[in-house]
Design a protein around this nucleic acid. Structure first.
Length: 255
DNA sequence: ATGGCTTACAACGTAAGA
C-alpha cells in the first residue's frame, strides 16, 4: 500500500501534473490540499479514467481538500465535528479498513495575528477529534499540509526562521500534541538524509538552493507505523514547469 | 527574500500563501 499527500496550490492549474504523477506512481491514496476548486468543477471523469475515485470539499479561490483513491471511499466526512468553519480544510474517508484523514492546517500568517490564533484553535479542535478517530480506527493516517516544521532539522536555516510562523514554539507544541495521541511521523520512522524538505518558496532559486521547510506530513497510528516500510519526499514535481511550491510526500506499507 | 513568485478574482491591483 502506498499513501501520498500533496499541496497542489490550485488543482485547476496542476491537474495535468497530478494525473501524470498518479500514472507514474500509482498510489492507493493521494491526499490533495489547496485545490481552490468548487465541487462542481472537480475532475471526477479524468480521475475515473485512471481508476481513481474521490472525496472532496472545495471552495472558490482558497483552501479545498480531496482524497483520491483506487477503490471505494466510505464514511466520508467533511470538516472537524463541532468546529464552525467555512474554510474547506478537512476531508476524511475509509478505504479498505484504513481511515484516511486529509488536513490543510491554516497557515497562521504571522505570530500573534488573528490568523495565528485561528491556527492554534483549529489545531486544538483537530487534536480532540483525532483522539476520537484514533480510538475508533486501528489503522489510521492523518496526512496533509500541517504548516508546521516540527523541529529545527526540518528548517533550512533555523536561525533565520527562529520564532517565525510555521516554526514558533506554540505551533510546534500543538504539533507535538498530535504525536502525543500516539501518532507517528512516518518520515521519522526511518533514518533520513539531512536537509529534506517538502516546501520551497517560489522564485529566487529557493528550490535550487534547497531553502525549504518540511511542513507536509503523514502521521500514522501504531498499527500502520508497524507496517510502514519507507517514507520520502518526491522532489521531481517541484522542478516541473509551473510547479506547486510543495512536493508530494509518500509512504509505503507492507501488507 | 526582511518574497525576488504564484494563485484567483476580476482589477489593470489586491489578498493570500509559507
Amino acid at each position: 500500500m502506498k499513501l501520498a499527500t500533496w499541496n497542489v496550490n490550485s488543482l485547476g492549474v496542476r491537474l495535468p501534473q497530478v494525473l501524470a504523477w498518479l500514472e507514474a506512481h500509482r498510489p492507493d491514496v493521494l491526499a490533495l490540499q489547496e485545490t481552490k476548486m468548487v465541487d462542481e468543477r472537480f475532475p471526477v471523469q479524468a480521475l475515473a479514467e485512471l481508476g481513481y475515485t474521490a472525496a472532496y470539499a472545495g471552495q472558490k479561490t482558497y483552501n479545498g481538500v480531496a482524497i483520491l483513491a483506487r477503490g471505494p471511499l466510505e464514511a466520508v466526512r467533511v470538516g472537524i465535528p463541532g468546529l464552525e468553519d467555512e474554510q474547506r480544510r478537512v476531508v476524511a474517508a475509509t478505504l479498505g479498513g484504513v481511515r484516511v484523514i486529509c488536513l490543510y492546517v491554516p497557515n497562521g500568517q504571522a505570530v500573534g495575528s488573528e490568523k495565528y490564533r485561528y491556527k492554534l484553535a483549529w489545531l486544538d479542535a483537530a487534536r480532540a477529534w483525532l483522539e476520537a478517530e484514533l480510538a475508533a480506527h486501528e489503522r489510521l493516517v492523518v496526512m496533509g499540509d500541517f504548516n508546521v516544521a516540527p523541529e529545527d532539522r526540518d528548517v533550512h536555516d533555523p536561525r533565520r526562521w527562529a520564532g517565525q510562523v510555521l516554526v514558533s514554539a506554540p505551533e510546534r507544541a500543538a504539533f507535538r500534541t498530535l504525536l502525543d495521541l500516539g501518532l507517528r511521523d512516518a518520515f521519522r520512522l526511518f533514518e533520513q538524509p539531512g536537509q529534506v524538505y517538502s516546501w520551497w518558496n517560489y522564485g529566487a532559486l529557493a528550490f535550487r538552493r534547497n531553502w525549504g521547510l518540511r511542513i507536509d506530513h503523514l502521521l500514522v497510528s501504531p498499527a500502520l507505523a508497524a507496517k510502514c516500510r519507507a517514507c520520502w519526499v518526491d522532489r521531481a514535481p517541484r522542478a516541473h514547469e509551473r510547479p506547486s511550491d510543495h512536493a508530494p510526500v509518500v509512504a509505503e506499507f507492507g501488507s
